[in-house]
Each structure stands twice: as structure tokens, then as C-alpha cells.
Amino acid sequence: MQNILNLPPIWYTFAILSVLTLFGALGTIMSKNPVHSVIYLIVTFFSISAHYILLNAQFLAAVNIIVYAGAIMVLFLFVIMFLNMKEEADEMKNNKLVTAAIVTALLLGGILIIFLRRAGKEKVDALGFNSQTGMVEILGQSLYGEYLLPFELISVLFLVAMAGAVMLAKREQGERHF
């Protein structure tokens, strides 16, 4: 008990945020209503952003909120509201889906275990660590310096995906107007 009381405030913050994150994640997969699921997922994204801020990665936190909470989840909500799904999905009766879900879960679990084992060995030196690593300036310099080629390649990939999406959505000649 004495140990818990003497913890630094940041540990309490971390504990509260972790509980919130898990609450959101569990809510996402356990709620019956898809709209509720999406809202729980937004809660999860927010608490993950808060974790980034705890790690002094402000840029990542802001971008996570802008891109995921601000744009992608709005589109999710948009589509789900349009579909207005009411009846229970009977996806779990489908054998193929169950197999795919199990394989994906095993792969993800494997990756998680590998990373946890590595994280235990390579401890970061707290005194020599540059606390400004997650700030915009340093991140930008490493993205546009050290990692310039992968960065540019990824943006080309995005451009291709965007052009593809526009092509798919384009109304072709003879198709009916909505």
C-alpha cells in the first residue's frame, strides 16, 4: 500500500489512461450497436493519443487525433449511419471467417510476443535519452533526411491508392444517376 501511495503522479496518469484505453477497446468489440462500437473506438484513439503525449510525442498525438479520430472515424460513422444495420450479423456461423480471425489473431499475438521480448532486453538509457525526440522539428528532420526515400515512396503509394479510389467511385457512361 505504501508503495502505491509513493508512486510519481505520472504513474497514476498512466494507470488511469490504460484503464480508459482498455475500456474503450473492450466496448468496441462487445457492444451490439455498431454506432456505439465506433464511439468506443474513438474513446480508444483519444486515450492512445494521451499515451503519446505522456511519451512526449506531441506531433504523433495530434496527427493521430486529426487523421484517425477526426477523419477516418467520421467516415466510419458516416457509412454505418447510412447502412443503419439493425439485424444481428450471423458472421460467426461462417467457417471461413472464423478461420481467418483465428489466423490473424495468432499472427498478431506472435508479433506482440516478439516485440515484448525485445523490449525487455533493449532498455533505454534514461539519462542519455533526448527528450525532444518526439517533437516536430526532430521528427521532420529525420523523416526528410534519413528516411527521405521511404517517405516519398509511401506518398506515391498513397497517391496511387487515391487515384484508384476516384476511379472506382467514378460514374461510368450509361450508369444511372442517384
Partner: peptide, 10 residues
Amino acid sequence: ILYVFGVVSL
């Protein structure tokens, strides 16, 4: 600015 932009998008 990113903060403002994030809040606006929410």
C-alpha cells in the same frame, strides 16, 4: 496549429 486543426475536425 495542429491542436486547433484536431479540435476543429472533432
